[in-house]
Computed example of a mutant assay.
Amino acid sequence: MAAKQCHKKGWSVATLDLDMATTNGETIAHVLMALAQWERRQIGDRTRAALAELKRQEKPYGGRPSKTDLRGEVVNYITMRRDEGACVSPIARELNEAGHLTSPGNRLYPSTVTKLVERVASLSIQN
């Protein structure tokens, strides 16, 4: 199939056949490795610049989200809904709709609710 036909069908064809035993193959491989290293460094530069800007603006960045917003009322609600037999996905959706977010304002996912359920269970076993 011609390239135009592939493009019309929305196909993308990529091939790379390097013979590292030849001078051309070895040279192309080195150029590709240099470009990959350049891109990695560019990503690092952009990330450092973005983090510096967040720091300058005194906005939170990095690390794990604080759990200060996920105590008391939210944990009690999760425990109550789990006792009623509710699954974690609907509980997460309900909490998001009610405006309960993690710090610094991330929405709750079912995995977050699962971790909270496990944390509550481990605390009740210890007590």
Rank of each mutant, 00 (worst) to 15 (best):
L95P: 01
C6A: 15
G72D: 09
I28K: 04
Q126A: 09
Q5S: 12
R93I: 05
R46N: 11
Y61F: 13
C6S: 15
W11I: 14
L16H: 11
L95N: 01
D69Y: 10
V74C: 04
T27Y: 13
M33R: 14
I91H: 00
S124W: 00
G62K: 01
R119H: 05
E58R: 10
P90Q: 02
S103A: 12
L123N: 05
K59G: 06
D69N: 13
A36I: 07
L18N: 11
G99A: 03
Y77R: 10
V74N: 00
Q5V: 14
T23W: 15
I91D: 00
L35H: 14
Q5M: 14
W38N: 08
K8N: 13
W11A: 14
P104D: 00
A50S: 08
Y109V: 03
I28S: 02
G99H: 03
I78T: 01
G62P: 01
T22R: 12
I78W: 02
R64Y: 08
Q57K: 10
R119G: 03
R46M: 09
W38C: 06
V113L: 01
R41V: 14
A2W: 14
G99M: 02
T47M: 09
S103T: 10
A29E: 11
Y109C: 03
N127Q: 08
Q37F: 05
S66H: 10
Q57A: 12
N96M: 01
E39K: 09
S66Q: 12
T15W: 12
H30D: 13
A50Y: 05
L101R: 10
S122G: 02
S122P: 03
L116A: 00
V120S: 09
D69A: 12
L101E: 06
E94G: 03
R119V: 01
T112M: 04
A92G: 03
T27W: 12
L108M: 03
P90H: 02
G85A: 03
V120A: 11
E58G: 09
V75N: 04
L16A: 15
G72K: 07
A14Y: 15
V31F: 13
E118T: 06
E53K: 09
K55D: 14
E97C: 07
E26M: 13
A49H: 09
G10M: 08
E118D: 08
L123T: 08
L101P: 01
D45V: 05
A98E: 04
W38E: 08
G44S: 13
S122C: 06
G25I: 06
E53L: 07
Q42H: 13
E94H: 09
T27G: 08
E84W: 04
V88G: 06
A3W: 15
A50Q: 06
M20I: 15
A21R: 15
P60S: 04
T15Q: 15
G10S: 08
Q5R: 13
K59H: 10
E73A: 13
A98R: 07
N106P: 02
M33P: 10
V113A: 00
V113P: 00
P65E: 05
Y77G: 02
L108V: 00
H30V: 11
L123I: 08
E97P: 00
L95R: 01
S124P: 00
G62F: 04
V88T: 08
Y61Q: 05
A36P: 03
L123S: 07
L51V: 12
K59V: 11
I125N: 07
Q57D: 12
A34W: 15
V88M: 12
N106E: 04
A49E: 10
V75A: 06
G99T: 01
G105H: 00
R82A: 05
I78H: 02
V13F: 15
S111I: 03
